[in-house]
């Protein structure tokens, strides 16, 4: 904080500090406090708001606990998000390792550019591209039919579609932290391990992954949070059997007309995400300041 004043002087420093505080209050605190407020109140007709029925209680949250279908979707969303994070990690780690340790600077620039360009368009449009690709009469089925891998078109929409769409959507959030972490690993560490006779597997398990642990934890946490809070991919690429918890929340707000219950559901999701993130970081012995970097 003192730095800000040192760097910009008293006047500008005060302005910047005030802007940050306004931003924190308006964009972070206010919505969250409102959400908690909504979550803990009953859903009442406008005339009854402020009346003697309008008291704080946990009934909205307990409703989720007692509602079997919603509860199942909730837990499925959590573990499916973990699965998305894991698959994204498996996809990204070899690419990140290759980019950071083996690729020439030109190759690195080219691949990173190729991976970044799709992110210049909106997430909805990107997911729409997968919608077209994975359609029942879409190019993927046509191609697989043409080369004879399948005999009849496959219905990709559902769990597979959602998984594919999410892994694709969040690949950069996994790739960059891991790439940065591996890039700072001295090449001779890998060479020394190899020289001492270590197998590829052991080199990664004992030298590269421990070094990149903070980056890997960061990538997994980002991807997990984004997946758990994702709406577009499940809405476009899902099927009735693959509903995501965010869709339930959406329904409470815009179809069920019960904002309070929607807010309660959102609050539960938020808290559980926070718990998962903190536990992951604790396990990886990474602190939050490392993640912020």
């Amino acid at each position: 904080m003192g730095d800000v004043f040192k760097r910009f002087g008293g006047g500008l420093g005060t302005v910047f500090t005030a802007l940050v505080l306004v931003w924190l209050a308006g964009m972070v605190l206010a919505p969250n406090i409102t959400m908690i407020d909504y979550a803990l109140r009953p859903n009442l007709p406008p005339s009854a708001i402020g009346g003697d029925q309008d008291v704080y209680s946990l009934s909205n949250i307990l409703y989720l606990a007692g509602e079997d279908v919603h509860r199942a979707i909730f837990f499925k969303t959590i573990w499916a998000s973990a699965l998305v994070a894991f698959i994204t990690f498996v996809v990204c780690y070899p690419i990140a390792y290759w980019l950071a340790q083996n690729a020439t600077p030109n190759q690195t620039a080219l691949v990173l550019l190729a991976l970044t360009i799709p992110f210049w368009i909106n997430e909805v449009l990107r997911t729409l591209a997968w919608y077209i690709l994975l359609a029942f009469r879409g190019p993927l089925n046509e191609a697989l039919l043409a080369i004879g891998i399948i005999d009849a078109p496959v219905r990709w929409f559902g769990d597979t579609g959602v998984l594919a769409g999410m892994v694709y959507a969040y690949i950069l959030f996994m790739l960059f932290p891991i790439y940065n972490a591996i890039e700072s690993l001295e090449k001779s560490q890998v060479e020394a391990a190899k020289d001492l006779g270590a197998s590829t597997w052991r080199i990664h398990a004992r030298v590269v992954i421990p070094h990149a642990k903070a980056g890997i934890a960061t990538g997994c946490v980002f991807t997990f949070m984004l997946a758990a809070g994702s709406y577009v991919a499940p809405a476009l690429l899902g099927a009735p059997g693959s509903r995501w918890f965010t869709q339930i929340i959406y329904n409470w707000f815009f179809e069920g007309g019960n904002w309070n219950r929607g807010a309660a559901y959102a609050l539960v999701l938020l808290v559980l995400c926070l718990v998962v993130v903190l536990v992951t970081l604790k396990l990886a012995r990474v602190n939050l300041t490392d993640v912020a970097k």
Binding site: E186, S188, Q189, E191, A192, A193, K194, D195, L196, G197, A198, R206, V207
Partner: peptide, 15 residues
């Protein structure tokens, strides 16, 4: 890994 040699790197490359 297949040669009877061991290398000591300029940077030492300790883990």
């Amino acid at each position: 890994d297949q040669r009877p040699t061991a290398m000591i790197f300029q940077s030492l490359a300790l883990f």
